[in-house]
Design a protein around this nucleic acid. Structure first.
Lengths: 209, 209
DNA sequence: CTACAATTGGATCGTCAAATCCAGTTTCAG
DNA sequence: CTGAAACTGGATTTGACGATCCAATTGTAG
């Protein structure tokens, strides 16, 4: 991962770090709800309770801030997913992970979609740095899923020859596609259909119990 | 589908219809490449070779134009997909459909994603009319896929009890999710993994040959 | 032909966002 | 304690964008 760390260098005081973090958190929230283009500096100013000069003290420009938001959301998602994925030792555990993802989407009626997915959709085509960072985020997420599947193999739930790499990508794509459809349909129907179909295929690959 | 037809009423001459169509086509292209927010009226003016007054003569405002773009892209995708899906009579035909989708994504290295998917990601949360239209578009797309699967059932390729509804949603979600990941990763790896996994599951449901 | 509606060109207005600037305050190393 | 660096407030500049306006032109029904 080579996305340079922006302006953290000049941040040295405790209060400064807190302000910076407050800006990133508020920006992440606004950008998730209104998109990057839909998030203005005045709006961010108010949401974070800072002045405009503070924003530009801690970040080169909006692009720089956006990169920090990507890192922030990546961190948040991985921190949330990792514990669920680290303990995959059965098909039921995999289904429990599925339920968490589906329930989260259901609670907001699909609104918002995936924080990384919507950032990627908006930024990937025109912001190479953002695209690279998001590609790395997705790879990290897929890797976490893959390691869960490897755990299931280690536990004897899945056959050793299971293609964990491919299945992890399929599961992640099912999540992303399901969330895209959920956002338009306001239903988790497609998300469930996609995840359940991939999981059914995994089950068919399981060791005969 | 209840999204009112905007301002087509006042369009009466042949030349007027041509101008209107030219604006929609140019807007669809720009919005696909730069997003809706990233498409300015001056840019559209130049791309379509019209004056600003013409844009506002044929459309109430940008929202109205955006709705026409959604209809335009929906039409384009369904027209492209329908012939492939109408003739599904074997697993090979389903795989041929898969190849068309994957090849299209590969040709642009994932750039752009799905025209409907990216519109939905940008608009669904804050534009109810757009969301409804896009939901209907996705439903129509899923229905086309479903009818293809029903064809495979009629041909005896799939078992009569196959849940064509669910599988159609899973395939569509696989496409959408695969394209989201393709846009960030610039690879069709995830798209292929997702589609192939769902298709493998369908194959397992096929009649024993 | 002709009158009226449809269409077109292009200047213009109001708004708002990104970014800069500078003066003032706080923090902290030595 | 003190001075330099970090931090903060808020006014300001610059530019673009959505939208409007009006005058001029073109199309067409009768």
């Amino acid at each position: 991962m080579s996305t340079q760390a922006a302006r953290q260098d000049t941040v040295s005081t405790r209060k400064g770090r807190a302000t910076r973090e407050r800006i990133v958190a508020a920006a992440a929230d606004l950008m998730y709800r209104h998109g990057v283009a839909g998030t203005s500096t005045p709006a961010l100013r108010d949401a974070a309770g800072v002045s405009s000069s503070q924003i530009y003290h801690y970040f080169e420009d909006k692009d720089d801030l956006t990169r920090s938001v990507i890192a922030f959301q990546t961190e948040a998602i991985l921190a949330h997913q990792a514990p669920l994925l680290a303990r995959l030792d059965s098909l039921d555990a995999l289904r429990a992970w599925r339920d968490v993802v589906v329930d989260a989407a259901r609670q907001q009626h699909g609104a918002g979609g995936c924080p990384l997915g919507s950032l990627s959709s908006e930024l990937s085509d025109h912001n190479p740095q953002a695209r690279e960072a998001l590609a790395a985020s997705f790879t990290a997420w897929a890797t976490a899923i893959r390691e869960g599947l490897l755990g299931m193999i280690a536990h004897g739930t899945l056959r050793p020859r299971t293609d964990s790499d491919r299945l992890a990508l399929a599961l992640l794509a099912a999540v992303q596609g399901g969330l895209v459809l959920a956002q338009a349909q306001r239903t988790t129907e497609a998300l469930e259909a996609a995840l359940d179909t991939v999981i059914a295929h995994i089950q068919e690959q399981a060791t005969p119990r």
